[in-house]
């Protein structure tokens, strides 16, 4: 099980039952904690639906008390290839 975190302005951005593109950061312990990835994912407000957990923070870093689970479907590469 992985722990992830996402920043949103409004929890409504986490629409359920559809593929979303999200910027999430890992909360797994270790030196890479808090590094980001851009992913395609599905989320659920049922913390048991997917294996990975998703914690939510709002615009100014406030922790939301709503807990989600997440399935990461794949990474999205946004960076232009000239910089890779």
């Amino acid at each position: 099980m992985n722990q992830w975190e996402v920043f949103v302005m409004d929890v409504a951005e986490l629409a359920e039952g559809q593929d979303l593109e999200l910027t999430i950061r890992t909360l797994n312990p270790g030196i890479h904690k808090y590094t980001y990835k851009r992913v395609r994912a599905q989320v659920s407000s049922d913390p048991g639906k997917f294996a990975d957990q998703l914690q939510v923070r709002l615009g100014r870093g406030q922790m939301s008390n709503r807990k989600f689970s997440i399935e990461v479907l794949g990474e999205v590469q946004r960076m232009p290839s000239k910089y890779l």
């Binding site: 920043f7 910027t23 980001y36 615009g59 100014r60 870093g61 946004r78 960076m79 232009p80 910089y83």
Partner: peptide, 13 residues
């Protein structure tokens, strides 16, 4: 490194 002026990623809060 290099600054990528035409590619931006999230920063903050």
């Amino acid at each position: 490194g290099e600054i990528c002026p035409d590619y931006k990623v999230e920063e903050g809060p």
